[in-house]
């Protein structure tokens, strides 16, 4: 490896985490998609924050807006059709949404980085994996080709790809699914980002490989004290890794809690529904409780509580009044009957 790539050569970051390690604040974010079928309100006032060394899980079904949130943070939404009418995304105190394009681009990779669900389609099929990892250094650090390849080997070794040196010039289709996701991770952590967003990183993988990838992510996060946002619909995946969780439904956060509380004492009927739909060994033979119905059409979001058409506890008030996100015990829930859910 070339000596020119020691820590001192890395440009000083313009961004400094706030007091108590605050990295990212999303505040009252709205995202709409203007389509011929109408305006789809994908995100409706989402707020959360993330600190150094913390793992936040964002949970929800597909269409709940969790991926759109991630893409809005990364700044990779296609605009149009996407429009951000209001809200702020502050990274180290600076609003990403008001930055110019070039500043924003330079933040992708060295500051905030992202891993996608399907590594096969997310990697370019026509370039060697080492080339694709090394591209981070070439674009952001102006490194030459051979140094960039050396860095790629180092990173591939770090994410435990066997025979990294020999495989650095292989193409994505020559790797297994788990190995490909490791390559995605190597690429995402290449420039030591402060925030890593993982969008369904294990959904496309076998169960045993899922555990390995989650362990790797947790290990890297611990080692680098990154803020990690873990987006998933699979509650089983995040239980061991996440510190806190936010549950999204129809573009809103409907529940927020420490991960233990969320599992042990859900305070929102939707969270409870999600938990009940996980197969459990101690309830063998019983019918799995699925949540009836489908997520709402985002061009026609129901009045009142957006979840009421699918909620077993729905009352009249749920159809007319939208519940605010409020504190119940040591967690938050946007349900008119949060106490009943928590205690029932």
């Amino acid at each position: 490896m070339s000596t020119s790539t020691t820590k001192s050569a890395i440009p000083e970051s313009n961004y400094k985490a706030g007091a108590d390690g605050l990295l990212l604040e999303v505040e009252d974010l709205f995202v709409e998609f203007h389509t011929p079928e109408g305006v789809a309100r994908a995100i409706n006032g989402v707020s959360f924050d993330l600190r150094q060394g913390e793992t936040l899980a964002i949970l929800g079904e597909s269409g709940s807006g969790k991926s759109v949130t991630a893409q809005a943070i990364m700044g990779i939404l296609d605009m149009p059709p996407a429009v951000i009418p209001s809200g702020a995304i502050r990274y180290c105190g600076q609003d990403l949404l008001t930055m110019n394009q070039e500043q924003r681009r330079k933040s992708r990779g060295p500051e905030i980085s992202m891993i996608f669900q399907d590594a096969l389609s997310s990697l370019n099929p026509t370039f060697p994996v080492g080339w694709q990892i090394g591209e981070m250094f070439r674009q952001h650090r102006g490194m030459n080709r051979s140094d960039a390849y050396a860095q790629a080997v180092r990173l591939m070794e770090r994410v435990a790809i066997p025979g990294a040196k020999d495989r650095v010039k292989n193409y994505p289709h020559q790797f297994s699914g788990g190995m490909r996701q490791r390559i995605m991770i190597a690429m995402a952590i290449a420039l030591d980002p402060a925030v890593l967003i993982a969008d369904e990183p294990t959904t496309a993988l076998d169960v045993t490989v899922q555990a390995q990838i989650m362990a790797l992510l947790a290990e890297l996060q611990e080692e680098r004290q990154m803020g990690l946002i873990l987006i998933t619909h699979d509650l089983g995946v995040v239980a061991d890794v996440a510190d806190r969780a936010a549950v999204m439904y129809a573009g809103r956060i409907v529940a927020r809690a420490g991960i233990e509380d969320l599992y042990a004492h859900p305070a929102h009927p939707y969270t409870r529904g999600l938990l009940e739909s996980i197969p459990r060994l101690d309830q063998k033979g019983q019918t799995l409780a699925a949540i009836g119905g489908l997520p709402p059409n985002l061009t026609r979001i129901p009045s009142g509580c957006t979840f009421h058409p699918r909620c077993r506890m729905a009352q009249d008030i749920c159809r007319t009044e939208e519940p605010a996100l409020r504190t119940v015990g040591n967690q938050q829930s946007a349900c008119h009957f949060a106490e009943e859910v928590l205690n029932g």
Binding site: I76, D118, S121, E135, M187
Partner: peptide, 23 residues
Amino acid sequence: DYVRTAVAKGLTKRRAVGVHTLR
């Protein structure tokens, strides 16, 4: 998807289109 990845990597638009998409 891989073009989205290229953008998420912080590549310039020229590079994301000229190198990743064109080939």
